[in-house]
Design a protein around this nucleic acid. Structure first.
Lengths: 224, 224
DNA sequence: GTCTATAAAGTGATAGAC
DNA sequence: GTCTATCACTTTATAGAC
């Protein structure tokens, strides 16, 4: 009657395949991943991939959409809170408060990037950054543009810059670079710090370092 | 007579295969890359991969070694110059000079990471960071450990920290994160800045931003 | 919606001629 | 050192039974 139906057997199959796809596509890449490996990991028959998603490529895009949804579940509340405080044109907010919001945003990203699930997501997203496919559009529109958009907005207020300018975007990018390195240089960080996984201690250490760096960068006197 | 011989036909085949391997393994990953694609890109016969390198895996490791050599050609002079100035225990060097050396090191990395060749290298290295194979050992020992080793040494002098400590390594990692994001978030940066490639203007913009950030981070008053 | 079976094309490695 | 031809598998997608 409506689009809201009770979960059917097919829905369970779709879900199992998508979870397996995020894991296996992320690890091996699209071309190196076989439909048999996907089906086996999901515990379903190989022919069901074509039935439910049309093709291996269809399953891949479903996996990308799944990642976007999971990431947005985590960051949308944070982004909404910042947006609400910034308001339509609440340029009366002091820069110290904007810095605090920026640090909150980065803290959220540290937590996200140190979560176990993010290992798999990061692998897939990194592949799309190096060789964008149709999936990158969905990642960019769903996650990246929203996050950097807020960050440039905050930075614009803090340092009295045009949020759309090349310089502001570049500054935002270098700030996030400090956090994203947690996943991009994964193996090297394990070697240098001995960290095998991120517990409360490691997360706090990273957040504290990021706080010091970002405060120093954004609160320094104007130069040049 | 000696190991120094004139280049033979086989040497040209080896070189062509390695160049093709860096390109194609980097783009598609090890498992998704076919020996026929490698041979065709190199303009040689498919059977010559097994003849010269034993297997597809042998060619892959030769490609990793090739990248390590090319990167070291570029960074070893810089590292040697810094090491020479630091000396055996020249703790008399002022921290301002150490900051200048740190900025030189990061400038060199900006130039390296904005070069056309580095697009391909970065793809392969990123894959090894996410899923380390035997190749990662060679990358880490040949490049990463040397670079971060120097950086933690410099940071130790500038901020009076133990170069081996977790905190110093974490600080060094966040500094390099600002630069490495140039390649890791490749597609997003193109979207936000409109930069299609890195010319003199883009390189200067990045270096200038990194200078401001790193100076602010390393020269701030001690906190906490 | 799920299964088995299979068609058509692709895989890495190798044998053997030159 | 390079070639062709081929072996033994694996691949995606689909046809058709249930």
């Amino acid at each position: 009657m409506t689009t809201e139906t009770t979960p059917s057997r097919g829905d369970a199959t779709r879900e199992a395949l998508i979870r397996a796809a995020v894991e296996i596509f992320g690890r091996d890449g699209f071309n190196a991943t076989g439909t048999r490996a996907l089906a086996e990991a999901a515990g379903v028959n190989q022919a069901l991939i074509a039935y439910h998603f049309g093709s291996k490529a269809g399953l891949y895009l479903a996996a990308i959409d799944y990642i976007v949804e999971r990431v947005r579940e985590r960051i949308d509340p944070l982004l909404a809170a910042i947006n609400a405080e910034l308001g339509d044109d609440g340029s009366s907010i002091p820069r110290e408060r904007c810095l605090a919001l920026m640090l909150q945003l980065l803290d959220g990203f540290v937590v996200l990037l140190t979560s176990d699930e993010s290992v798999t997501w990061a692998r897939l997203i990194l592949k799309e950054q190096q060789d964008p496919s149709e999936g990158f559009e969905r990642l960019y529109d769903g996650v990246m543009s929203r996050v950097i958009g807020i960050a440039t907005h905050l930075i614009g207020r803090i340092r009295d810059l045009d949020p759309e300018s090349e310089a502001t975007n570049l500054l935002a990018i270098t700030l996030f670079g400090q956090v994203l390195i947690l996943r991009t240089a994964r193996a090297t960080i394990e070697r240098r710090t001995g960290w095998q996984q991120f517990t409360q201690h490691e997360i706090a250490a990273v957040q504290s370092q990021i706080h010091r760096n970002v405060t120093a960068i954004l609160m320094q006197e104007n130069t040049e």
